[in-house]
Write a protein that binds this DNA or RNA. Structure first.
Lengths: 197, 197, 197, 197
DNA sequence: GATGAATGAGCATTCATTCAT
DNA sequence: AATGAATGAATGCTCATTCAT
C-alpha cells in the first residue's frame, strides 16, 4: 500500500473513532486519549494527523455535512417541481440520520455544547441546509405552487421542526424508526406553507 | 435586614450572576470563580449556598422554568378556545425570551452542552412545555376546531420551530426584535395543523 | 444554672462530641462542622470555647491523660512492692481502655496522624507513662526484686508491648475483651525483666 | 537509554522523592506538587506514572515491605534453630531501619495517619511480619526450646516492643545508633518467652 | 510516521477560621 | 454566648498539547 493511501486510511480511522467516541461520551467529556484508543493508535498519532481536538471535530463535521448534502442533492435532482424536491430532501435527511444515529447525535446534540467556534461552524452548516430549503420554497412561490410567504421564516420553521424530530429520536431511550415520522411530518410542513399535501 | 432575608438575597444574587456568566461564557467554560466574582462574593460563599457548580445550573433552570411556565399559564388562562390559548402561549414565550436574551441562551444553547444529567433535566422542562402544547392541540381536535392529526408529532414540530426561531435570534450577531416573528410564525404553525389563521 | 456552669457543660459536651467524631472519622478527616453537629452546637459555638481544631484535640488528650494517670495512681497506691505496683498499673490501663474504645483509638491511632505538634504532645503524655513504668522498675532493681537491667529500654518494651496489644484490639473488626489479655501479657512482661511471675 | 528503562528510572525517582517528602512532611501534609518538585518532574508527570497520591504511598509501602522481608529472609535462612532465627530477624530489622530512617518513619509513623485504607494495608504488612515471628516461636515451642506459651500474644509483644524502640528512635531529636539497642532488647525478648539469653 | 512520556495551566471542591449580628 | 454566613488559601486531579526518540 502506498504511503499516501496508508495516511488516508489512518485519517479516516481516526474520524470514525472520533465519531463513535464523541457521540457516546460527548465532545467535552471525551478525551483525545479515548479517541486514540478507539482508533487503535496513540495520542501522538492523532496529533500527527490533526492539529488538535477541535480540528478533529471540524473535520468530522465537514465530512458528515458533505455526505448529507450529497445525499440531499442526489435525492433532489431527480425531482422537478419545488414541493416534490423539498419532499425528497426531507426524506433523504430522515433516511440518513435514521441509519446513522451517532452522526445525528454529533450534529444535533454534541455540536451545540462544543464551544463558540464549533457552534459557529455548525451554524454555517445549518445555514447551508436552511438556505437550500428556502431556495426551494422561493421557487415554489415563484412558480405559484404556494402562496407568497415569509420563506426565511418558513425555512427556519421547517429546519427547526426537522431538527426537533431527529433530536428527540436521538435522545430517546428506546427509539423507533425515524423514517416512520415522515408522512405526518411531511403533511404538517406542507400545510404550514399552504401547499396541498 | 433579618438574616433569613439576607440569605435569600445572596442566593438570588448568585443565581443572577450565574445566569449572566453561564450565558456569556457557556456553562462548561465558566468557572465557579467567575460566578463568585460576578456575584460579588467569594468561592466559599458560593459553596455555602449551593452544593456545587451543577446545582447552581439546576437551580437556575428551575427558577427560570417556573417563571416561564407562570407567564404562560397567566397568558393562557384568559383565553377560552384552544387555538387562542396556544396562540397566547406562543406570544408569551416570544415575549419572555425576547426581553431576557441571556435566559433564552441558557435554555436553548448552554443547557445542551452541560453534560448528560443537565441535559436530562432540560428534557424534562422541555417535555412539560411540549405536553402543554399537545394538550391544547388535543382539545382543539376534540372541539372540532382542527381536523384530527398526530398531535404528538405536531407538538414536536411546534416546539422545534419555536426553538429554532428563538435559538437563531439568540445566536444572531445583531438580533432584531424577537416578537416581530410572531405573526408569520403564528400563521405557519396554525396552518400546519389545519387551523384557519 | 449559673453562667459559669453552663459554659463548663458546653465545654464538656464539645469534648465528648470531639472524642466520638475524631475516633470514628479520624482527626484529619473530621471537620469542625461535624464536631459542632455532634455537640449540638454551631461552628461559631465551637470557636467560642476553643481557639481552633487542634486545641480541641489537645484538650481532649489532656483530659484523657489526666483520667488515665488518675486511674493508674489510684490503682497503684494500694500496692507496696514495685512488681505488684507495675502489675496494678498494667491492669488499670487495660481496664480503662477496655471500656473506652474510642479513647484508646484517639490515643493510639488518631494522635499519630494529627501532625507534628500533636505528635509531640502525645510523646509527652506517653513519656509520662513510660517514666512511671521505669521508675517502678528502678525501684524494683534497687530493692533487689529483679536483677539490674537497662530499665530505660525495658520500660520502652513494656510500653510498646502494651501499646501494640491495645492498638490491635482497637483496630480489630470484632474485638474480644481487652482485659482477657492480662494474664498472659503480665507473665511475658514480668519474665522479660527477670521477675518470677 | 531505551524507553522502558527510562520509564523505570522515572518511576523509581518518583518513589524516592515521595519517600523523602512523605517522611519529612507527613503523608497528609505533603502535596503532590512537592513530590513532583523533589522528583524533578511535573505534577502531570507524577500522574502519568501513578493514578493518584495514595497509589504512590501504596507502591512505596510495597517496595519497602518487599525489601524488608527480603532482608529478613536472607538473614534468617542461614540459621537453623528457631531462637537464633528470630534473633537474626530482629537484627535485620534494626539494621535496615537503622540505616534508613526515612523508611522507618514512613512505616511506623506516617502510615498510621494516612487514612483508613492505607492503615489497612499497613496492617497487612505488619501482619506478615508478626506471623513470621509467631511461626518461629511456634517452632521453638514444638522443638522444646521454650516452654509452651501464648505465641499469638507473644508475637504481638515482640512486634510492639520492636515497633516502640524504632518509633522512639525515629522521633528522637538526636537519635543514637539504633542497632545499639540490640543486645538489651534481645535479652528482654528472649527472657519474655522463657528462653535462656 | 508513530509512540508515549512529559508538561503545566486550569478547576471544582474542602475547610479551618473570622466576624457581623 | 451563640449563630451561621462569608472568606480564601490549599490541593488533588484532568487533559490538550508538545516533543525527544
Amino acid at each position: 500500500m502506498p504511503t499516501q493511501a496508508r495516511t488516508q486510511v489512518r485519517h479516516e480511522r481516526i474520524l470514525d473513532a472520533a465519531l463513535s467516541v464523541f457521540a457516546s461520551r460527548g465532545y467535552r467529556d471525551a478525551s483525545v486519549d479515548e479517541v486514540a484508543e478507539a482508533a487503535e493508535t496513540s495520542k501522538g498519532g492523532i496529533y500527527f494527523h490533526f492539529p488538535g481536538k477541535q480540528a478533529i471535530f471540524v473535520a468530522l463535521l465537514e465530512r458528515s455535512a458533505d455526505l448529507l448534502l450529497a445525499r440531499i442533492v442526489e435525492a433532489v435532482e431527480v425531482e422537478r417541481e419545488p414541493v416534490a424536491r423539498a419532499d425528497a430532501a426531507l426524506r433523504a435527511v430522515l433516511k440518513l440520520f435514521g441509519s446513522h444515529r451517532a452522526l445525528a447525535r454529533l450534529f444535533l446534540v454534541e455540536a451545540l455544547g462544543a464551544g463558540p467556534e464549533l457552534r459557529a461552524r455548525m451554524a454555517a452548516v445549518n445555514g447551508r441546509f436552511a438556505a437550500f430549503i428556502r431556495q426551494n420554497l422561493d421557487e415554489a412561490v415563484q412558480q405559484g405552487a404556494i402562496a407568497p410567504i415569509d420563506t426565511a421564516l418558513a425555512s427556519q420553521v421547517w429546519f427547526g421542526a426537522l431538527n426537533q424530530i431527529v433530536s428527540d429520536w436521538v435522545l430517546a431511550e428506546q427509539p423507533g424508526r425515524l423514517e416512520d415520522s415522515y408522512p405526518a411530518l411531511r403533511a404538517l410542513l406542507l400545510r404550514s406553507v399552504g401547499a396541498a399535501p
